[in-house]
Amino acid sequence: MHWGRRGAAAADAPPLPRTAVELRDVTHAYGERTVLSDVTLTLTESRIGVIGANGSGKSTFARLLNGLVVPTAGTVLVDGLDTRTQVREVRRQVGFVFQDPDAQIVHPTVAEDVAFGPTNQGRPADEIARRVDEVLDRYGLDGHRDHPAHLLSGGQKQLLAIAGVLVMEPQRVVFDEPTTLLDLVNTRRVAQVIEGLRQDVVVVTHHLDLLAGFDRVLVFEDGRLAADGSPAETVPWYVARNA
């Protein structure tokens, strides 16, 4: 079962500008506990997977990419923008979808929650309305627009969290274990959504089948980048190492 190839919707749509994310000698610690050490790399590919055991540093790495976490040492740049000093501009470029959608849903109804991001960006009211309508229709949420957001099913909540990011039209989206809390049907649905995006994506996951067809997979181990290459190279290496 493989979900990683980009769908026709993504292939037929006009390409978005590409983002380049650079990490230069990045280390991050929570108090005295170092969770990432000396990470230097550049991300330019369209589809990048991130894997590793729990506690390996992969979620902290993901949060560094749009300034949710800033490095204790070193620098993270998004198209030359420093996440430490230009975080608002960085987040226009890089969206973030959390593992638990309840951490991301902030407004009472579905439509209000989707409208929050572009409203916060200062978009005109007519543009916000158009974007909200488009994204709710795209992800099958239009019939729930006035529904209490926190009463949606788990799969619908994850789609709402994704819609709330995509309505702001970032160039790259980071997904932090987006299918971990979902059943198989909703895992497939979210995988299909990711597959069809025009945006560049970074996907942190334990579901290795999701990464088939990706351009690049990073493996983290004990806070360090342990492997970096194509899925055909890195996924078998990771599986064998953890057999």
Rank of each mutant, 00 (worst) to 15 (best):
L151E: 14
D79S: 04
T83E: 04
D176C: 08
D12Q: 12
F220D: 08
Q104H: 09
V26T: 02
V21T: 07
A243V: 03
H206C: 03
L210C: 08
L184P: 00
P17F: 12
D209G: 14
V135A: 07
D102V: 03
F214N: 04
L136S: 03
V193H: 10
R84T: 03
V239E: 13
F175S: 04
V26Q: 12
R84G: 04
I105A: 08
R47D: 08
V26R: 12
A163E: 02
A125Q: 14
T72D: 04
L208N: 10
T72W: 02
Q171M: 12
V35P: 11
I51A: 09
T27E: 06
V173Q: 09
S59Y: 06
A73Q: 13
E169W: 10
D215K: 10
R123A: 15
G31R: 07
R84A: 11
F61V: 06
D209K: 13
D12H: 14
N186K: 07
N242Q: 13
G95D: 07
F116A: 06
G4S: 14
A129M: 05
G74Y: 03
T83P: 01
F220R: 15
P231D: 01
K58C: 08
D82H: 12
V50N: 08
T19R: 15
G55T: 02
A8V: 06
D133V: 01
H207P: 04
L182W: 13
E134Q: 11
A103P: 03
I51Q: 10
L36E: 06
P15A: 01
R18L: 10
A11E: 15
A226D: 15
S153M: 06
D126S: 07
G95W: 00
L81S: 02
T85A: 12
L16N: 14
V50I: 03
K58I: 07
V185G: 10
P178L: 09
L65A: 04
V132R: 05
E233M: 10
G140N: 11
E112M: 11
V190P: 13
R198E: 13
T109V: 11
T40G: 13
T109C: 11
G49S: 09
E169I: 04
E112V: 00
T119R: 15
D142N: 09
T234V: 15
I194H: 14
T234G: 09
V70T: 11
G4V: 10
N66F: 04
V201D: 13
W3Q: 12
P148T: 00
G55E: 05
V217S: 11
P108T: 02
G31H: 03
F175D: 02
G213N: 14
V78C: 08
A227E: 09
S56V: 00
A226W: 08
W3G: 06
A103R: 13
V193G: 04
I128E: 10
V201Y: 15
T119D: 07
G223M: 12
Q158T: 01
V26K: 11
N54Q: 11
A149N: 00
R189T: 00
V219A: 15
S46I: 08
P118F: 09
R172N: 00
